[in-house]
């Protein structure tokens, strides 16, 4: 292959990638625009709140409790190498609140909610339900997309907050029941060590990750191809894109909150 052909292929791939990014950005801008302009669909919003928030609580909670417990064990055994076992409460707290709570909640939402949104909307597209909405004078962006994204934007920070607390509780139970920590001292160390900035960063990450998860689910659903294969591709693509974007956004937000 000649260098010129290689360069042309590279150029085409770069342009295609940039065009894809542009389409997602325009879709997100359109979503926020529809979120702010009537008509609004409160029933759809309440259903989305239930699906995204309440029904995701068990999976986020279970993920957090096991992660908090494992984190306590790891820090204890790792810390023992240089006589730093006592930092378990502080590291569990900071680890859960700053990183693991929001990231794991975001990834669980990507797995549970993004896939569900993408599959549902893609199926609606394949079965002409989206066209039916249009003929019934209902804008699909307002009826399907805006309520889901708004629900994720509002509920995922709450899920992250609950996940943070449950994760710390997991570390607390393991530390006090298995590792011999004093319960009162553990709680005091946790509370004293955490700063407001840690909590705010956690909630902001939750809002960002929830928005990314819902937008990617809606985008892939609305742009899905035909047939069962189209629905499958949309679902797979949405989860992959949401997971990667959540991790990238986590890196960027960590930089914004803690490196400046």
């Amino acid at each position: 292959m000649s260098p010129l052909t290689l360069l042309a292929r590279l150029g085409r791939s770069t342009l295609a990638a940039l065009a894809a990014v542009g389409r997602v950005v325009l879709f997100a801008a359109s979503t926020f625009s529809h979120m702010l302009r009537p008509p609004f669909y409160p029933r759809e919003f309440l259903i989305a709140l239930l699906n995204v928030g309440w029904l995701s609580l068990p999976v986020v909670g279970l993920t957090a409790v096991f992660t908090g417990g494992a984190l306590a064990l790891q820090i204890y055994s790792g810390g023992a190498r240089f006589n730093a076992e006592a930092v378990v409460p502080q590291i569990v707290a900071i680890g859960m609140v700053r990183e693991l709570g929001p990231v794991l909640a975001g990834l669980m939402i990507a797995a549970r909610v993004t896939s569900s949104i993408a599959a549902e909307i893609a199926t609606m597209k394949v079965t002409e339900q989206i066209d039916a909405l249009v003929t019934l004078s209902t804008h699909p962006m307002k009826y399907l997309v805006a309520p889901r994204v708004l629900a994720a934007l509002l509920t995922v920070p709450a899920l992250v907050a609950v996940g943070d607390i449950i994760g710390i509780a997991g570390g607390y139970v393991v530390s006090t029941q298995s590792l011999g920590f004093n319960p009162a001292a553990y709680l005091k160390n946790t509370v004293d060590f955490l700063e407001l900035r840690d909590v705010i960063s956690s909630l902001c990450k939750g809002a960002a990750f929830g928005t990314i998860a819902a937008i990617m689910g809606c985008y892939y659903g609305m742009t899905s191809g035909r047939g069962a294969q189209g629905v499958g591709r949309a679902t797979k693509g949405s989860v992959e894109a949401a997971a990667v974007l959540i991790l990238a956004a986590n890196f960027a937000l960590t930089g914004v909150f803690f490196s400046l």
């Binding site: 259903i47 609606m124 079965t127 002409e128 339900q129 039916a132």
Partner: peptide
Amino acid sequence: FGMLFQGAALFDS
């Protein structure tokens, strides 16, 4: 307008 779609296109939910 009213429209009857090929597969009816009823809203499942």
